[in-house]
């Protein structure tokens, strides 16, 4: 009990490496990323570290971002599509502090986008990297809890169990009852968990211009989808994969064919729907698009249904 106890109030902050992780850890993660890119959809085991935020709160994504980020990068962090949710704010602040990088909420300005549960509505471009936070990377885990077994199934490309499960859904419910974390097949080989994004976002993974990296910290797995890679949602001829559709446009910006959050307005059943992607919604509003709640405006409103991606 010496110095530390005596001047605990005036302790110098511990010094950390650029982007928090030590270089040896970054090297280990970088090697895993390269293997992940070389074998698209295969989950590469990596020696995930304890991070200064809890497991399950994006430690995998944070480690991947920390391993790739450089001082010239511009970072965007979203949670549920929004830049201003508390966990997104917290992770963005972490990198602003430990790596001193510029941050942004504008999708086109970002070089690295770390995400939880959504893919931005604005199409990603070449040179961008989308980093997913993944809770359970194993798409077969809820069919077979044992790692030793699921590893064999991937090795043998034995995915019958997954099809049986999806078909049982149809038999019981008339629908495939998976609405998020909907399994995909990558480049005709590996069945992969897209992280708990709504299946609405699955088509955006297919032939994306951006590199997609997935980090699961607690489960110690990294995987990747290179740009221009075939990503197909599993389905059946008589029950083709389809995404969610919303009956009404965004109440704020009038966008259609985007993913909407339901907002409860009162205790009398009042509901409205607004964009889950906050940047997409704000830039549409800045461009003069108005949804029902904000009143109509010239060129938008009534014909909002005809509006498509207005950006770029």
């Amino acid at each position: 009990m010496n110095a530390l106890a005596q001047d605990e109030g005036s302790q110098n902050l511990a010094t950390y490496n650029f982007a928090y992780l030590d270089e040896q850890t970054k090297r280990m993660i970088r090697r895993a990323i390269l293997k992940g890119i070389a074998v698209p959809g295969y989950q590469v085991p990596f020696a995930s570290r304890e991070m200064p935020m809890p497991y399950g709160w994006g430690t995998g994504g944070v480690q991947v971002t920390a391993a790739i980020i450089g001082p010239d990068d511009v970072l965007k962090v979203i949670d549920q599509g929004a830049d201003d949710t508390t966990n997104a704010v917290s992770i963005r602040a972490f990198f602003a502090k430990t790596a001193g990088v510029a941050t942004t909420t504008a999708t086109p300005d970002a070089t690295i986008i770390q995400t939880r549960h959504r893919i931005p509505e604005t199409p990603l471009t070449q040179g961008q990297v989308l980093v997913y936070q993944v809770p359970i990377p194993e798409p077969l885990r809820f069919l077979e809890p044992r790692e030793t077994e699921t590893r064999k199934m991937h090795a043998l490309e034995e995915y019958g169990l997954m099809h049986v499960k999806l078909y049982e859904d149809i038999a019981r419910n008339g629908h495939i009852a998976t609405t998020y974390a909907y399994p995909v097949k990558v480049e005709g080989r590996y069945v992969m968990d897209p992280s708990p994004t709504p299946k609405f976002d699955n088509p955006k993974m297919h032939q994306s211009e951006a590199l997609q990296l997935f980090g699961a910290g607690r489960e110690k797995r990294i995987y990747a989808i290179p740009p221009h890679t075939e990503v197909v949602s599993l389905d059946f001829e008589d029950h083709p994969f389809e995404i969610q559709h919303f009956d009404q446009p965004c109440a704020m910006c009038g966008a259609v064919e985007v993913y909407l959050d339901e907002v409860v307005l009162d205790d009398k059943g009042g509901r409205m729907f607004v964009c889950s992607d906050t940047h997409h919604c704000e830039s549409r509003q800045a461009d003069g698009h108005r949804g029902a709640l904000l009143g109509e405006s010239p060129g938008a409103g009534d014909d909002a249904g005809a509006e498509k991606e207005a950006i770029r």
Binding site: P54, D79, G81, H117, R118, T179, P198, K199, E262, S276
Partner: peptide, 14 residues
């Protein structure tokens, strides 16, 4: 404890 993080996107899908 991560279950207390927002999950409204997935919940919306459900």
């Amino acid at each position: 404890e991560h279950l207390k993080l927002p999950h409204y996107v997935d919940f919306q899908a459900e």
